[in-house]
């Protein structure tokens, strides 16, 4: 039923269909040497899938993504325990620019496009690590996904929020990564734009075969797009399963998908909640 592939870390399964791409194993993350944010978090991302990572504000979702992409280093954070394995290789402690070269690309929370450059320059920077000559074709491909970006020739800082999100996703596509870590792509967008963003996320997953680890506040949309999901609270995973299981889970319904009374503030208070220890 639930994803129980933790045992597979020692010997990655060879079955092509469900090959593990990323496995985060019981990591602990500390900021500034004192602030403990992740307390034994584990998750797994099979190749070719969209995996959703959900949780309340401050649960540590962005921290998890930064631990994987190595960007934690730029914020004085450190993985102090556990390990992160990408395609069988341990990657914790590696510099973020090297991790991009291994094929992991993070689309950070809040778009973070380079405001004083044009769309085209932003996109070309996405392909910074590439040396092949397919960059020009990929520019055309990105523009075919986002025709609006082609019309905007001014500075990216003047784009609308939705357009900036498109640019941020397009920039990630330009890197031709194997895995995209996407942090709240729907943040601050209108419902219509949210739909568009999610359909594009699914499209690039399908068309380009990119694996996606998707952090979201919009649980409903995320669990529709994803094949499986993790729910985290206070720096730990408290529930996981296929997207369908999570969608039908009473607690998730109540807590994330709306409905139910407002009293319950945490999964800890839920009777039916079965805490799964992922310590090995």
């Amino acid at each position: 039923m639930l994803n129980t592939a933790t045992a597979a870390v020692a010997a990655p399964p060879v079955t092509a269909a469900k090959r593990l791409m990323l496995s985060v194993n019981n990591i602990e993350v500390v900021y500034n040497d004192v602030i403990l944010v992740l307390r034994g978090l584990s998750l797994e991302v099979p190749e070719g899938e969209i995996v959703a990572l959900l949780g309340a504000n401050g649960a540590g979702k962005s921290t998890t993504l930064k631990a994987i992409s190595g960007l934690l280093k730029t914020e004085d954070g450190e993985v102090t325990r556990g390990d992160i394995t990408f395609n069988g290789e341990r990657i914790n402690g590696i510099d973020p620019d090297q991790i991009v070269r291994k094929g992991i690309f993070q689309v950070m929370e809040g778009r973070r496009i380079i405001a004083d450059m044009t769309c085209l320059e932003n996109l070309r920077l996405g392909a910074y690590t590439r040396r092949d000559n397919g960059v020009k074709d990929d520019l055309d491909m990105v523009f075919s996904y986002f025709p609006r970006l082609k019309e905007r020739t001014g500075l990216a800082g003047y784009l609308s929020g939705g357009e900036q999100q498109m640019l941020a996703i397009g920039r990630a596509m330009m890197a031709r990564p194997k895995l995209i870590l996407m942090d709240e792509p729907s943040m601050g967008l209108s419902p219509l734009m949210v739909k568009e963003v999610f359909s594009i996320v699914q499209q690039i997953n399908r068309d380009l075969g990119v694996t996606i680890l998707l952090v979201e506040q919009n649980a409903r949309m995320a669990l529709q797009a994803a094949t499986r999901g993790y729910i985290m609270e206070n720096g730990k995973v408290v529930l996981d399963g296929t997207a369908e299981e999570l969608r039908n889970n009473e607690d998730v319904k109540e807590f994330y998908l709306g409905g139910g009374n407002e009293e319950r503030k945490s999964f800890k208070n839920l009777k039916s909640f079965k805490r799964r220890k992922r310590w090995i």
Partner: peptide, 9 residues
């Protein structure tokens, strides 16, 4: 930080 996220050293 953004530069590093793009793979720039």
């Amino acid at each position: 930080q953004v530069a590093q996220s793009l793979g720039i050293s």
